[in-house]
Design a protein around this nucleic acid. Structure first.
Length: 879
RNA sequence: UGGACCGUAGCUCAGUGGGAGAGCACUACCUUGACACGGUAGGGGUCGACAGUUCAAUCCUGUCCGGUCCAACCA
């Protein structure tokens, strides 16, 4: 075999193995030894997107699960895809067209502009698809779908028409959240509230036929032009006598009724409320109750319309100043008070959202939501961590109708048609004629569907629904319901809830058995990564610097049931070191590999039994952790095994044998090293696919396939050796004490020393005697004495089972030693008195369970022995 | 204002009704033939505060303080 580099080169392995996996069709579902399927649908990233840390975490956790299950022998499918992301994509292309041609979309026909978006999509869209590969994702790319693909369009129309014909979809003139920049309705969930410094404007309204004045307070005086009533609380003694009279709106001099409504609070503001049904959600409701006219004072771009009088064409905030000035001149403005209030902003445009009256399509979600709730309540779908169910429930238990329409061009056009004779009907395909009057003259509704409508159908769509033939080809019955949905908590509302509702509605089955909600990636200070803060960490750069395996391991090691994952590049560097450590461990056994066997030897020695037991414990624990989505635990298990067991002790304890002359022992040890290495590499594969596949290629037998489809190790009952675990623990403890003593007097690591051990356990004594070579190797012990006379000039340490003496030739700083022992006594004494007080407590002895009592007793005995030994030897030093 | 979650080492976070843990950072020593992207040893915490339940509380209950998120209020 060729010489191996001292440090592992991630780049070479990455380009090499991804190609081999993909070309070898290893990502395709194949029947394994388990007769079960496992399927994850990847949350489709936006077509405009660049790979960011959130995606990287998504991919890492999903791909780790997929690789784990694939190795376990499940028929495994990971489905990739991409979202057309209506608003952001259209915005990107509009911007580009404006930059290049100084034209807006309205300078083109709808079709012309859509052609431009498609062209953009072919050219620039989907960079992310290539970037996903760099994360080592193993989806079946043959399943790749785009939410605007024809098959997706068929699914969307099928579902829409179904819901329409059931009467669940309706059209209504309502107030919606209107984004004046996008000039479209947006959903409640797309509105972000921010606290803004504004003012309370106190304005006097005259009462018709009286000298009385009504004082109202508002943050938006300009909406006064749309006032259609003044409301007071019916119980309010201050205003009761005015109910039923007429008020006059200043400036526009509109006469409006003074009405009574319970909504108006007595103690809030002035107790008088101006009612503007056209521009406030609550006022709209009041208006409905009292049959008030609705006046719209805004154009779609957020400027005032004809109702805005001389301010027509001005933006709200500009008109506000002028209107206030006019009110002041007219003597109507009585006070302006500073006020911080929250104002809705569009999460895409960042512009203030206006409640605006418009005709939109809605979906009644009551029954669908109830069913979605029920299926989580009865554990058909389970959330991990379970607490996220609360978020899910809080949304679905009080569902509002879903505004489905968006005034955009890029998206699935609403499949509703209006004929010239005023008939309205829905149709999955472009119809031949009106089903009612057979006219061939009709138009399609110009609006498109909310992007989440197609996303909500995604688990169905990607598996071929509703086309029977495609469903068969894609294995719908095998893979639906999918196994796990992995996503962040920020889209439980947007996405998880919608998929549940739509999956249950169309197939009467939940779309997934489990939902794993992972953390949101933040910077090391816990701030959200954002372009404006410039604190984003680019996964591609991290991959370049530290390798995909290191990045994946870092993200997985940070993923359990936590809410935030604060990422620091230093952490990635740390795990890069871990990956390199494994590489170097391999370099150690590499020259000997050919001298070992493929299987375990018949006669295992103590250390071999120990490492195999440790490996077994690790495998058992990792399997459990993977099933529970505790990637953090799984990572720390394998990390600890590699560093603290395999490298620190087993490799060190193998050097003597590998460089020695006993060929049988040597061959045995190489076989065990090789066996362990193969297992640990397999355990690590889901997190670090590249280095493990690379090392596996060097370790595997001729007849074995690639690691990606080899066995994931599980617990093996015949490889547990508890006695060896226990003995080895004591050995490690004593060696650590020896090193500790050496270090306390600055003995060089090279220098050999004599060690005297004193203990009462004969069995343990024999074990130590058999382990002389190991003491020499790991503690640099020249001669090991057990029992006999205690060395006169020496330093000393005690465990609960063994006293350790290190004789010293030169000058010993007695005071220093006494101080050290005293400190140890203090510590041990504290522990001891704690347990002793328990044993002396009758109530404890009476009520505590037997195994707790015996555990405490055992501990007390050990500590007592240790304490006794420390004290006895302290007096020796003091004399 | 309501709800959810959280408060454990300098930082990021695990954890359990019965001996306080990990990673990173830190300190000292060491270029020992897998690895300085390394090794060995070590320091560091009233487990947010107070009260209660219990033989026993970091863990259970309550109150308070602090934080994050969601919802509401947006006159």
């Amino acid at each position: 075999m060729s010489e191996l580099e001292k440090t592992y080169s991630s780049k070479d392995a990455e380009s090499k193995w991804y190609k081999i996996w993909e070309e070898g069709k290893y990502f395709r579902p194949r029947k394994g030894k388990v007769d079960e399927s496992f399927c994850i649908v990847m949350p489709p990233p936006n077509v405009t997107g660049q790979l960011h840390m959130g995606h990287a975490l998504d991919i890492t956790t999903q791909d780790a699960l997929i690789r784990y299950k694939r190795m376990k022998g499940y028929e495994t499918l990971f489905i990739p895809g991409m979202d057309h992301a209506g608003i952001s994509t259209q915005a990107v292309v509009e911007k580009q067209v404006w930059k290049e041609e100084k034209k807006s979309r309205h300078d083109f026909t709808r079709q012309e502009f859509l052609d431009k978006i498609w062209k953009w999509k072919e050219e620039y869209g989907g960079i992310i698809k290539h970037q996903q590969r760099s994360m080592g994702a193993s989806p079946d790319w043959d399943y790749f779908m785009f939410t605007m693909d024809p098959e997706s369009h068929v699914a969307v129309n099928k579902c829409f028409v179904h819901l329409y014909n059931e009467g669940l979809i309706y059209r209504d003139n309502r107030l919606v959240n209107w984004d004046p920049v996008l000039q479209s309705a947006i959903s409640d969930a797309e509105v972000e509230f921010e606290n803004v410094q504004g003012n309370f404007y106190h304005i006097h309204y005259k009462v018709k036929g009286s000298d009385e004045l009504l004082e109202v307070a508002t943050t938006r005086p300009e909406t006064m032009l749309g006032d259609t009533a003044i409301a007071v609380n019916p119980e309010d003694s201050r205003w009761k006598h005015l109910i039923g009279k007429t008020a006059i709106v200043p400036i526009c001099n509109r006469e409006v009724p003074i009405i009574a409504d319970d909504y108006v609070a007595l103690e809030k503001g002035t107790g008088c409320l101006k009612v503007t049904p056209g521009h406030d959600f609550n006022d709209f409701e009041i208006g409905k109750r009292h049959n008030l006219p609705v006046i719209n004072i805004l154009n779609l771009d957020g400027t005032l319309n004809g109702e805005g009088l001389e301010w027509e064409g001005q933006k709200c905030h500009k008109a506000r100043k002028d209107i206030c000035k006019r009110l002041e001149e007219l003597g109507h403005l009585v006070a302006v008070k500073k006020h911080i209030h929250s104002v809705g902003h569009g999460d895409r445009s960042k512009h203030i959202i206006e409640p605006m009256l418009s005709k939109q399509w809605f979906l009644t979600t009551n029954d669908m939501a109830a069913k979605a709730v029920e299926n989580v309540e009865n554990d058909t779908t389970k959330f991990y961590p379970k607490s996220w169910e609360n978020t899910y429930f809080s949304y679905l238990r009080s569902p509002r109708d879903w505004c489905l329409s968006r005034q955009l061009w890029w998206g699935h056009q609403i499949p509703v048609f209006y004929c010239k004779n005023d008939h309205t009907f829905a149709s999955e395909t472009i119809p031949e004629e009106c089903p009612e009057c057979s006219t061939k003259e009709f138009t399609q509704d110009p609006d498109v569907l909310d992007t989440w409508f197609s996303s909500g159908l995604w688990p169905l769509t990607t598996l071929g629904w509703p086309n029977k033939e495609r469903m068969e080809q894609k294995g719908f019955d095998t893979f639906y319901p999918t196994s796990v949905l992995v996503t962040g908590y920020d889209i439980i509302f947007f996405w998880v809830a919608r998929m549940m509702m739509m999956g249950l509605k169309e197939e009467n089955k939940v779309p997934f058995d489990k939902v794993y909600i992972h953390a949101i990636v933040r910077d090391k200070q816990g701030r959200k990564m954002s372009k404006s803060l410039g604190n984003g960490i680019d996964p591609l750069e991290m991959i370049k610097e530290y390798g995909t395996d290191a990045l994946r391991f870092t993200l997985a090691a940070g993923s359990g049931y936590n809410r935030n994952l604060n990422l620091d590049p230093e952490k990635i560097a740390g795990y890069r070191n871990f990956i390199n450590k494994i590489w170097n461990a391999f370099r150690f056994i590499h020259p000997f590999l050919e001298e070992g066997e493929a299987s375990l030897p018949k006669n295992l020695d103590h250390h071999e039994k120990w490492i195999l037991s440790q490996l077994n414990l690790t495998a058992a624990s990792m399997n459990e952790s993977m099933e529970d989505f505790r990637f953090d635990d799984a990572c720390s298990d394998i990390y600890a095994f590699v560093y603290d067991k395999f490298c620190s002790w087993f490799i060190e304890l193998s050097k003597n044998i590998l460089y020695g002359e006993d060929e049988t022992k040597k061959a045995n040890r190489i076989s065990v090293l090789k066996y362990c290495f193969k297992k640990l590499v397999a355990l690590l594969h889901p997190f670090a696919p590249y280095i493990t596949e690379e090392l596996w290629a060097n370790l595997k037998n001729e007849d074995e396939d690639l690691l990606i489809i080899s066995d994931f190790p599980g617990a093996q009952d015949d490889l547990n050796f508890p006695e060896d675990l226990e003995k080895m623990d004591k050995f490690i403890e004593v060696v650590t004490k020896i090193r500790n003593l050496r270090s306390s007097v600055n003995i060089s690591p090279k220098e050999m020393v004599d060690i005297h051990l004193f203990l009462s356990d004969k069995n343990l004594e024999n074990y130590y005697k058999d382990s002389i070579v190991s003491f020499t190797e790991l503690g640099k012990v020249k001669e090991l004495h057990i029992g006999g006379d205690k060395p006169k000039k020496s330093i000393f340490a005690a465990t609960t089972h063994t006293e350790v003496f290190l004789p010293l030739e030169g000058v010993i700083d007695i005071d220093d030693q006494i101080k050290r022992i005293k400190k140890e006594i203090e510590k041990t004494d504290k522990d001891y008195s704690k347990v002793k007080s328990k044993l002396d407590n009758e109530k404890f002895m009476g009520s505590a369970p037997a195994e707790v009592v015996s555990g405490v007793k055992e501990k007390a005995q050990g500590l007592e022995k240790k304490l006794e030994s420390l004290k006895k030897n302290l007096t020796m030093f003091e004399n």
